[in-house]
Amino acid sequence: MVMSASARVGKSYVFMSIIISTAIILLILTFLLINSWQAISEIGWGVFSSEWHPAAGKFGILAMIYGSVAVMIIALTIAIPLGIMTAVFTAEVLPAKYRFYVKSMLELLAGIPSIIYGLIGIVFLSVWIEDFFALQSGRTILAGGILLAIMVLPTVITLSDDALHNVPAKYREAARGLGLYPYEVLKSAVLPHAVNDIAGALLLALGRVLGETMAVMLVIGSIDRIPVPFLNTLLPGQTITSKLGREIAETAFGSLEFSALIFMGLLLLVFVLAFTILAQTFFYQPEQRLYE
C-alpha cells in the first residue's frame, strides 16, 4: 500500500516527537557533564575535600554533601514512620467512604509549591527552633530537615495508602476469619504484600527530598561547613541544592567555580535519577502511574 503524503508527514512528526522527548534527559546529562569537565580534570579528587573558598582555589564539596545527606536522614526519619502509620489508618481503619476526601486533601497538600513551605519555614519553623533550643539562629540543618519532612509527608502517606489498599481483600478476610486482631491482620496478611510498593514509595520520597531546593535554601543558613561536633544538626549548613540555588546565577559562566558547581549538580542528578529509575523499574510498572 502506498502511503499518502499526510501519513508520511504524520509519521515523521510522531517519530520526531518521541526522539525529542527521549533525548532531553540525555541532553541534560550531557550538558552537565561537559560543563563539569573543567572541574573534574583540574580539581580531580580535590573536590571531595571540606573547604569551599573559590578565591583561594579551594573547591571542596563535602560540606554540601554532608548537608544534603543530613537533611535527607532527618526528613525521612520523621516522615517514614509518621507517614506509614497514618497510611495504615487511612487504608485499614478509616471507612471507605471518607477515603476519597482524605486522598483529595493529600493531593492538595502535595500541590503546595515549595516556596510557600519556605515562607512558612522562615516565618514560623526557624523562629520556633530558635526559641525552643535557645539558639542564636533557628536557620539550621534541623529546620531544613523538618520542613522537608512536612513537604514529603503527603507523598509518603498517599503512596503507602495505595500500596496497602492494593492488597486484595481476600487476604484480609482470611486473616480476620482466623479471629486475628487488626494489628495482627496488618502484620501477617497485609504488610507482606504491600512492602514492595512501600519500598518503592520511599525511594521516590528519597529522590524528592534530595532534589528540593527553595524551602531548604531559605532556612538552612547556607554556610559551607560541616558541623562540629559532626552530628550537631542545630547548626547551620548547606545542601547541594541550596548552594546551587544561591550561587549558580552569580558565578561567571565558564569559570572553574561555575564548573565545580555544575559538578555538584551532576552528582545530585545521578543519585536522584538512580533512585527514581530504581523505584520505577523494580517496584512499579512505569506505565501505571507517575509519582511526583
Partner: peptide, 8 residues
C-alpha cells in the same frame, strides 16, 4: 525526566 530535581 519527571524525577529530575527542579533546580537542575
Amino acid at each position: 525526566l519527571n524525577g529530575i530535581p527542579s533546580v537542575i
